Simulated assay, not measured.
Amino acid sequence: MKIMRRLLVASTVALSTVGLVAPAADAAVDPVLSAPYLYQWESPPNPVSVMQATGVKSFTLAFVLSNGNCNPQWDGQRSLTGADITRVNQIRAAGGDALPSIGGWSGNKLGSTCSSATALAGAYQKVINAGQFKAIDLDIENTDEFQNATVQDRILGAVKIIKQNNPGVRVVITIPTEVSGPETWGQRLIQRSKDLGANVDVWTLMPFDFSSGGDMPGKTKSAVTGLKNKLKSVFGLADDAAWRKSGLSSMNGHTDNAGEVVSVNDYRAIRDWARTVHLARLSFWALNRDCDGCAGVSQGQYEFTKITANYTG
């Protein structure tokens, strides 16, 4: 099976009413629901400016990696409490929120570097504490983590510990997929989460890198429906409950596969379908590519982000 890869290409109020107490800036923001990926290299756009231009309220910040041992850093090289957290605080001050994405395709992975579930949970905890995050995204797509039973179980064991120690923190797991839904390793991960008692809040598929093209809204719907059916079967859920544990993270414009394109109209159709089943998460890779010609398609500035911002579950 071809593992899906992220395309690492960048072409790139305060309340003043007298007598009222300002609520916490991020009190009403769901960091998981509609949060495009924003990576931090190659002059990323200013998220506050993007919020003002699009109405989006949350971002998935990529990526937290191992620095060579069981120690998390942004991109495996920047302090957890440096400029990246300053950016998170700026987002929150503007009325939004963010969640960190741990993993991705490239770089050293914490899941395969940490020696035990306890050690891995400790690494995840450092990330949560650094940003006081209310949710984390575990992007499990590299073969070192995804196609390895021992590492899968280690990750799920760490999730169980994190959920026990942080009852209010939500965990998203993001994985590759086939058109029919999660492939063998994805199905194993879901089943083992039940076996091990790891309470994953949202399962998200990356429905792209299927082929040389075709009906991307149709293929996305097929993949996520397969996910819903797997969750329904494993956890004994009703359809509605299974949909509400499912999510998707698309890829704007040209994907990693030659000829495969998610156009603006495709993504709008995907969003409109997601509304009908009330998916728990809608995202895409990546905001940095969301400009005219940056992802190989003609579009308005931040058009995919605007579509995401209008998703309310």
Rank of each mutant, 00 (worst) to 15 (best):
L7F: 06
L8M: 05
V9Y: 04
A10F: 01
A10W: 02
S11Q: 01
V13C: 10
A22Y: 08
D26C: 08
A27W: 10
Y37L: 11
W41Y: 11
E42Q: 12
P45C: 10
P47D: 05
A53N: 06
T54C: 13
G55A: 14
K57P: 10
V64M: 15
L65N: 15
N69Q: 07
N71Y: 11
W74D: 09
D75P: 00
D75V: 09
G76D: 04
G76M: 02
Q77V: 11
S79G: 12
T86N: 14
I91S: 01
A93G: 15
L99N: 01
S101T: 10
G107C: 06
N108S: 14
L110R: 10
A117C: 10
A119Y: 03
G122E: 09
A123T: 04
A123I: 07
A130F: 03
G131W: 08
I136D: 13
I136M: 15
E145A: 12
E145D: 15
V151I: 15
G157T: 13
A158L: 04
A158W: 01
I162K: 08
R170P: 02
P176I: 13
T177G: 08
E183G: 06
E183F: 06
K194L: 06
K194H: 03
D201R: 08
T204Y: 00
S211F: 09
G213N: 12
K219E: 11
T220E: 07
A223T: 08
T225F: 06
T225K: 10
N229Q: 09
K232Q: 13
V234W: 05
A238Y: 02
D240A: 15
D240H: 10
A242M: 01
G247F: 06
G253S: 02
D256K: 06
A258I: 10
A258D: 13
V261Y: 04
A274K: 08
H278S: 11
A280L: 12
A280D: 06
W285I: 00
W285P: 01
A286N: 07
N288Q: 02
D292V: 00
T305Y: 08
